[in-house]
Design a protein around this nucleic acid. Structure first.
Length: 428
RNA sequence: GGGGAGAUAGCCAAGUGGUCAAAGGCAACAGACUGUAAAUCUGUCCUCUUCGGAGUUCCAAGGUUCAAAUCCUUGUCUCCCCA
């Protein structure tokens, strides 16, 4: 018995808009649906993860998901929701990004079951298409009048912002994607973020006009944060799925430091836990909020899926030392291997061992030597304000010197700026 | 084309000759309290600093003045009203 996908999205709080008839057809037959990912960067980020989860939920409801890499559409750039004309990426960038994203997407879905997922690249059908045939076969069916009524076109024109013909055409390309998949893969449903509604309906429109076919669309809620800031950003930038851009430790910490309110929202979106499991977790969380059960469960589930269980274990270990009852003594007891393994994702800086022999003034240590602070003044202020620690011991006196006595295992110093920013200083 | 208003720090915004590195708010960063939550309170918040200071700012370029964010001239841009 299939699970009702639309209802599934609903209780998870992910659903935004559904085209009429979508729920019915999903309950009637096994449906193939796709979501597109444009190769605008060399890695997906936690924002795209929500789309991936949509596909995953879809597959787990017994349907067949297609993840589309927009090799061709990426050449143009999606103008939806963008306030300004975008810069084109170079072909080399796109080809590179494409391969990175393809690799990442392959990790999340099941490619072997009876409703096996598929990975496609719209470059495959766009590369040979000729301008004239595109204009005749696609352009003829979607009128400019229709396109002008699209939200993003209106916004651009109203704000007298430029909208190039190139970007104006993006929607045709995406509509054609849907048409192609409909014809060749029997794909009847396109999903996406709420900003994709216009693109999706253009696709169903094209399919109806050209093939007299019925295709469907569904969009998901944009992920919001309770404080109104953008989801998926930290002080250091985007949270990527690529371990070399955002280390598993940082990734785990991203989920771990989420507020209670958001954690309740995100655990529904980013994990596969059932409604009952989540409600039980919430109940337990409310009984003992300090345990941060929700954040931990969320962090574990997502980190294991995106990285690996081993990465999760290492992140936990590092987190326990950094945020737990970890004291200077506990740190000193760690072996070099444990230390390095635990702090793998923590930024590392080097400092000369010879200078440490003579002792380095704390202010110099945190500014000039390690660049943890950009200037001496700032380092001094933070130290005096009690925002700086070494090996989990707070520094307050700016006259102090750091010497080799502070080295853990004769090699490392754990420097800390504020509560959450750690640096592993290596003496070399 | 005519008339009016304006341009100040990441953003909003006060300041209309010296007491101005420039009020206030937001955002950000840090501290306290907590639970790596929220709320609250405190500190920092142009740059550098030996913490004494030093340097560079108020659209741009000139000018008046001992002294200009503030007055004058020109230019650029934005908004509003009328044709």
């Amino acid at each position: 018995m299939k699970k009702n996908f639309v209802q599934e999205l609903k209780w998870r709080g992910m659903l935004r808009d559904v085209m009429p008839g979508t729920e019915e057809i999903l309950n009637k037959e096994t449906v193939t649906a796709y979501i597109g990912f444009d190769p605008t960067a060399d890695s997906l980020h936690v924002g795209s993860l929500a789309q991936i989860m949509t596909l995953l939920h879809f597959q787990r409801c017994g349907h067949k998901p297609i993840a589309l890499v927009g090799g061709a559409t990426g050449m143009i750039g999606d103008p939806s929701g963008k306030k300004e004309e975008r810069k084109l990426l170079t072909v080399e960038e796109i080809v590179y990004n494409e391969s990175c994203i393809k690799k990442q997407l392959g990790k999340f879905l099941d490619f072997s079951s009876s409703n096996a997922a598929e990975l496609v690249n719209n470059n495959d059908w766009f590369q040979d298409i000729r301008a004239i045939s595109f204009l005749r076969d696609v352009g003829k069916y979607l009128t400019v009048n229709y396109l002008l009524s699209k939200g993003f076109v209106k916004d651009r024109l109203n704000q007298e912002q430029e909208l190039s013909f190139t970007e104006f055409n993006y929607i045709l390309m995406q509509a054609y994607d849907f048409l192609w998949l409909y014809e060749n893969k029997n794909c009847k449903l396109q999903m996406g973020g709420s900003d994709q509604w216009g693109n999706i309906t253009a696709g169903t429109e094209l399919i109806r006009k050209k093939l007299r076919g019925n295709a469907y669309g569904l969009t998901c809620e944009l992920i919001t944060k309770s404080d109104g800031t953008k989801f998926g950003k930290t002080e250091t930038g985007n949270v990527w799925l690529d371990a070399s851009k955002t280390s598993p430790y940082q990734f785990y910490q991203f989920w771990m430091s989420i507020t209670d309110e958001d954690a309740k929202k995100y655990i529904r979106i980013f994990t596969l836990f059932t409604k009952e499991e989540i409600e039980l977790l919430e109940q337990k969380h409310n009984e003992a909020p300090h345990l941060r059960l929700l954040q931990k469960a969320l962090g574990k589930d997502v980190t294991c899926r995106v990285h690996s269980e081993a990465d999760y274990d290492a992140s936990i270990e590092a987190s326990e030392i950094l945020f737990g009852e970890g004291t200077t003594d506990a740190l000193k007891k760690l072996s070099e291997n444990d230390l390095l393994a635990a702090f793998e994702g923590v930024p590392q800086v080097e400092v000369s061992k010879a200078e440490l022999e003579n002792g380095i003034n704390v202010v110099d240590f945190f500014s000039d030597k390690t660049k943890i602070f950009p200037s001496k003044g700032e380092a001094r202020k933070m130290i005096q304000a009690g925002g700086v620690s070494i090996n989990k011991t707070k520094l307050r006196d700016i006259a102090l010197s750091i010497t080799k006595d502070s080295l853990l295992n004769g090699k490392y110093i754990l420097a800390q700026k504020g509560k959450k920013n750690y640096y592993l200083v290596k003496a070399g």
